[in-house]
């Protein structure tokens, strides 16, 4: 596939996202409000506990983790499942399938533009604000580069999870049900609503092996230089973990998608 063509999709996506200007500002604003909620809740939680460090996390650590997790969530947020079910119900999916490009690849690159926009409009500002408020609690060094790489991997894992779930839409019209299952599982098990450090040990062990950790927890752990991710020996297993899951999920997703499309086309659904 011609990389120029793929970048053209990214560019079109960027322009489309920017068209909805009011939406961009409202998103920014809504995020701020959400962060305020997170702040008050955890402030109260830490104040009531009477100690400064819980499970190796200080209030500042937890805040930075959750704030960045939220903006990472926005950055990664895709409406693949919703869009897919719409286009299935309206029959538009047929047109998409006829496009001279693999459907999965086409979808990925179409969304890439909005990722670029939300990176600059939500993640970057949040990051800068966190930097200013915490007076540089985030180390500025190689960890930033590792973080970016880990985020790209996270994006791929997230996309593959989205596509797997979206494929289920070919079988049912209950989009809400599918989407909410995906969202709650990903949010809980990836550590986006509560840092994985707080999980009980048994649950922690289970979560360690699941792909969701690769979406939020690994990039943020790397950024905050926790769990030995400031050394290469600590870093490598994390990247390896993400890569293995990318391979597994891509393979599973592609197989499931191709199988489903074939089945649907045969049935003339």
């Amino acid at each position: 596939m011609n990389p120029r063509k793929l970048l053209a999709l990214t560019r079109a996506g960027i322009m489309e996202s920017l068209q909805f200007r009011l939406g961009t500002f409202v998103t920014l604003f809504a995020n701020l409000i959400y962060l305020v909620l997170v702040y008050y809740l955890w402030k109260a939680i830490y104040a009531s506990s009477g100690v400064d460090v819980v499970n190796g996390m200080t209030f500042t650590d937890t805040m930075i983790y959750l704030i960045l997790a939220t903006s990472l969530f926005n950055f990664l947020e895709m409406f693949v499942v919703w869009d897919m079910s719409r286009s299935i119900q309206s029959g538009k999916i047929i047109l998409d399938l006829l496009k001279p490009m693999k459907f999965r690849r086409y979808t990925f690159w179409s969304y890439s533009g909005s990722h670029v926009v939300s990176f600059f409009l939500t993640f970057l500002p949040t990051f800068v604000v966190v930097m200013i408020i915490t007076h540089g609690a985030i180390h500025m060094g190689l960890n930033l580069i590792w973080f970016v790489i880990a985020t790209v991997f996270a994006l791929l894992i997230n996309f593959n999870i989205e596509m797997l779930v979206a494929t289920v839409c070919l079988y049912t019209e209950s989009t809400w049900g599918i989407n909410i299952v995906k969202e709650t599982i990903v949010l809980l098990l990836s550590g986006a609503s509560i840092p994985i450090a707080f999980f009980p040990d048994k649950l922690k062990t289970v979560v360690e092996y699941m792909p969701f950790r690769g979406v939020y927890d690994i990039p943020l752990t790397i950024l905050l230089q926790k769990n030995g991710s400031d050394t290469l020996e600590g870093l490598l297993p994390m990247f390896l973990f993400q890569l293995i899951w990318i391979v597994i999920l891509t393979a599973a997703g592609t197989l499931f998608w191709n199988y489903s499309v074939k089945k649907i086309t045969v049935n003339g659904g």
Binding site: I14, M15, Q19
Partner: peptide, 14 residues
């Protein structure tokens, strides 16, 4: 009034 291109899209934001 929309402007063309990527730069135009960013302009239109404001």
């Amino acid at each position: 009034n929309r402007h063309e291109g990527l730069k135009g899209s960013i302009q239109d934001l404001f």
